[in-house]
Write a protein that binds this DNA or RNA. Structure first.
Lengths: 133, 133
DNA sequence: CTACCTGCAAACTTTTTGCAGCCCA
DNA sequence: TGGGCTGCAAAAAGTTTGCAGGTAG
């Protein structure tokens, strides 16, 4: 069961969309929308930033692309400064704390694999809370 | 060795700052800056939104408060839609993919503890990359 | 008193959207 | 040829900042 959602209704291709996706697939740098826009503009000088945003949204909704930071247009704050995890309900938008001690072993594992110095990590869960199931 | 940073230079208290921190500590709802502003305004009607932002930043820099989504003012995109983890270098800002299979066991553990339906998770690591150490 | 902090409002940054025309199927 | 897609520019949304005056220490 693939998650193609119900976006398959009416949609066409466009040279812009193809180029945006190809450019994003062809880089490992996790560009911002603006960076991607500037890169794409090298090949298609009259493309607009609005088109880049529109297509990134379109691609994200179809699961063809990943948006880091989950397009949070604003920040949420937590009075508990100790590192802990969160569960965000995709139904009602509420954020819950998740009990349990942070897994330090995750950091060690990444440090071993990459050789980087890992100082912290963040872990967020998404799904449906008790009220929204 | 506590991470008090070098923010201890010159700073005073203010009724506003105390109230903002107390209000945030007194809720479990992970409010946005605007929500916090409206809550605080109940007790201090002339406080400004700018003051709330200024103090949240101040508190975050001192580690007294946690900002979810790490105050990312813009999103980054990844052409690889499969769930995978990222390492963000705090030195140069670059984002790297982290190899390794997503740990599905984390989701099961949270589902067991909360009774929520866990559909996905995100895991981000922070630290210093090879070039920045 | 000093200089940090505040309220206010304007500026800034990132993202979205209305509109007229283009172009893919 | 219809209607989804585009370029353009203005609007929206969230956050930051300059300024003049207030206030903690």
């Amino acid at each position: 069961m693939k998650n193609e959602e119900n976006h398959n209704s009416k949609s066409r291709r466009s040279r812009q969309r193809d180029l945006i996706l190809a450019t994003l697939r062809g880089t490992k740098s996790h560009p911002t929308a603006l960076e991607l826009y500037e890169k794409v503009r090298g090949e298609m000088p009259r493309i607009s930033l609005g088109t880049v945003y529109r297509n990134l949204k379109w691609l994200r909704e179809r699961g063809e692309v990943l948006e880091l930071d989950y397009g949070a247009t604003f920040s949420r704050f937590d009075g508990n400064a100790a590192n802990h995890y969160h569960f965000t309900c995709e139904g009602c938008g509420r954020v819950f704390d998740v009990a349990g001690p942070p897994a330090q072993s995750l950091e060690r594992s990444v440090a071993r694999d990459t050789g980087f110095r890992v100082l912290s990590h963040r872990l967020e869960f998404y799904g449906l809370c008790a009220d929204c199931q």
